[in-house]
Amino acid sequence: MTIDEKTVDKIAHLARLELADAEKQEMIKDMNKILGFMDKLNEVDTAGVEPLVYMTEEVNVLREDVVKQDITTEEALKNAPEHDDKYFLVAKVINK
């Protein structure tokens, strides 16, 4: 498969990109290089190689969740542009 200007135009449209003619030509070159590299990878003999699912043998290595700073409701609301006694007030964004 080779990338042509029509393919780049379609990809740019899907990605909501506007490309100048010079940029399109560079994209065509770059994408064809990527496809050439993928063809090289397809030449590698992978018979007997297990698929890689996880990068490491570690399972759920998580840090302990520790509260480092506790603030009161009043402190949290102190710099809010709009609030009542307990809550931040925000503009309505969903109309039913």
Rank of each mutant, 00 (worst) to 15 (best):
G48K: 09
V90F: 06
K78R: 11
V53M: 10
E58H: 14
K78Q: 08
L17Q: 13
E18L: 01
T46A: 09
T7Y: 02
M31P: 00
I3P: 00
L62E: 15
K68T: 15
A20Q: 14
K6C: 00
Y87F: 13
D9L: 12
D9H: 13
Q69S: 14
V93I: 07
R63A: 12
A91P: 05
I94N: 07
E43Y: 07
L35W: 05
E26P: 00
D84P: 03
V59W: 01
D85I: 00
Q69W: 04
T73I: 11
L41P: 03
L89Q: 12
K10A: 12
T2C: 00
K78C: 00
N60Y: 13
R16N: 12
D65W: 06
V61Y: 02
L41G: 13
F37K: 14
T46E: 04
L62Y: 05
T73F: 00
P81W: 05
V93G: 03
D85S: 11
D9S: 13
E75A: 15
D21C: 03
V67P: 04
D70W: 10
V59F: 09
Y87H: 12
D30S: 13
Q25V: 13
Q25N: 05
D84T: 12
D30E: 13
P51I: 06
N79M: 02
A22G: 08
D65V: 15
N79V: 00
I34D: 05
E75G: 04
M55Y: 11
D9E: 09
G48F: 08
A20E: 15
V66Y: 03
E18K: 14
E23L: 05
I34K: 05
K24V: 11
I34M: 09
K86L: 06
V44A: 07
V66I: 15
V67Y: 03
A20C: 06
N95R: 06
T73C: 07
L52D: 10
K33E: 10
G36S: 15
E57G: 11
K96C: 01
K96N: 07
K96L: 02
T73S: 03
E50D: 14
V61H: 11
K86N: 11
D21M: 07
L41S: 08
T2I: 11
N79A: 09
E64N: 07
A91Y: 03
R16I: 00
A12Q: 03
K92P: 00
K29R: 13
D45R: 02
P51Q: 06
D9I: 05
D9Q: 14
A22I: 09
L62D: 10
K86G: 01
A22Q: 14
V61D: 12
N60L: 12
A80C: 10
D39L: 10
Q69C: 03
K68N: 14
K78T: 04
D84W: 04
M55W: 08
G48D: 09
E23F: 02
E50L: 07
L89V: 15
V44Y: 08
F88I: 15
A47G: 08
D45V: 06
H13N: 14
L17G: 02
A20L: 11
I71H: 09
Y54W: 04
R63P: 03
T2W: 01
K24T: 04
E64H: 12
I34L: 09
L77A: 08
E50A: 11
